[in-house]
């Protein structure tokens, strides 16, 4: 593929060429309900621990 067919920002050595990008599985997990229910509980627990330590 010619580079001019790639969005300018994503071409080699351009800004968005370097960062890690999520693959399809990771993107799926971002909204996969069973996993996100677990993450919701885990995040709440972490915030409660923060509150207990900082108050």
């Amino acid at each position: 593929m010619m580079q001019d067919q790639i969005p300018e920002n994503k071409r080699p050595y351009e800004q968005a060429y370097f960062p890690a990008k999520p693959n399809k599985f990771v993107l799926f997990m971002h909204t996969f309900l069973p996993w996100q229910i677990i993450r919701f509980a885990a995040l709440n627990l972490k915030i409660v621990r923060l509150l207990m330590k900082g108050h």
Binding site: L33, Q36, I38, F40
Partner: peptide, 14 residues
């Protein structure tokens, strides 16, 4: 153990 970052629907519910 208390410093974290993540992206997801669970965070949106929070």
């Amino acid at each position: 153990s208390l410093t974290s970052g993540e992206v997801g629907l669970g965070a949106q519910w929070i």
